[in-house]
């Protein structure tokens, strides 16, 4: 295997890592604040991709507009779900919301299948980002490099916002002690809606980014979400840093593994997850419950 081929696989790994990182980051901030595992996250990713597709088809909106508007639309839908459904189950065992979001994912997916079947439709490569670039060691599609760059920038911006800004301090405070934070004059219920909407908005963003590189289909969410949950477990539930870092690392490992020993490609990530769970049950970056 030549160095150019290896570099190509690493870049491919970074591209899938870019999607994993955005998805698991969204899951992590939602889990951190609300203690719920959002099973509808894959469906939100799929809706982001369809948002871009529909906006281009019916409104003639180019990719860059979709990149901003589709995540916002997905976020608003998330806010609606949080306000009308998820919130009502919050006082109960987290399993209820796990079932609710799982059900929502099925409903959303089947609803989209009614209109679009399972075949899927292609989404045009954005103008200006088509073609390849010679990186010296290998040639690589420009658009895929843009995916890596956008995802990295967004992940770093979200990390900065949570760790270094006053809004982030409010989110961290509400994560640690919601009742007391409320008693300090912060509207935790509104903040929770915002965090949920923002988290699923990140999934929507990943969906828009994925649209030009894959077929836009109603099942694309359920295809990617299982691996994303493995990423979240490996990184540590609710860890911001962990979800970003693990997202990219798992992308690379999966890509390399698939080339080095193809039969293991689909199981590699889950073997990795099992290994991490044996050595560090709280994940690579997770703190045990109660020490957050």
């Amino acid at each position: 295997m030549g160095a150019g081929y290896l570099a190509l696989q690493i870049f491919n790994g970074l591209v899938s890592g870019a999607y994993f990182a955005l998805l698991s980051l969204g899951l992590a901030i939602i889990f951190g604040m609300m203690r719920i595992v959002n099973f509808a996250h894959g469906a939100m990713y799929m809706l982001g991709a369809f948002g871009a597709y529909l906006a281009a088809k019916y409104l003639g909106l180019p990719f860059w507009w979709a990149l901003v508007l589709a995540p916002v639309a997905v976020g608003l839908l998330g806010a609606l779900f949080e306000r009308t459904l998820i919130r009502r189950l919050m006082p109960l065992d987290p399993l209820y919301n796990l079932l609710l979001t799982f059900g929502l994912a099925l409903v959303i997916e089947d609803f989209m299948k009614l209109f679009f079947g399972t075949q899927g439709t292609p989404y045009a490569m954005p103008a200006g980002l088509s073609g390849v670039i010679d990186l010296g060691i290998t040639v690589y599609p420009i658009y895929r490099l843009a995916v890596i760059a956008i995802s990295t920038l967004v992940c770093l911006a979200v990390w900065f916002a949570i760790e270094k800004t006053p809004l982030g301090a409010k989110i961290r405070a509400a994560t640690e002690n919601p009742q007391l934070t409320e008693a300090f004059g912060i509207d935790v219920s509104r903040l929770t809606t915002f965090v949920f909407a923002f988290g699923v908005g990140l999934a929507g963003l990943a969906g828009v980014l994925a649209a030009p590189t894959t077929n836009v289909t109603p099942v694309m969410g359920s295809d990617i979400i299982i691996t994303t949950f493995a990423v979240v477990v490996i990184g540590g539930m609710g860890s911001i840093k962990g979800s970003i870092f693990t997202g990219f690392i798992v992308g690379i490992i999966a890509a390399l593994g698939a080339v080095l020993y193809p039969p293991i490609a689909n199981t590699l990530i889950f073997l990795l997850m099992a290994a991490v769970l044996i050595v560090r049950p709280t994940g690579l970056f997770g703190a045990p419950e109660g020490q957050r």
């Binding site: 640690e176 409320e182 219920s189």
Partner: peptide, 23 residues
């Protein structure tokens, strides 16, 4: 709700002090 009461001018210092580890 609690956050409105705080905004009406009530400040609370809880027994366990309520200092956040993550802040």
């Amino acid at each position: 709700p609690s956050h409105r009461i705080a905004r009406m001018g009530v400040a609370f210092v809880p027994e366990e002090r309520g200092i956040y580890a993550g802040l």
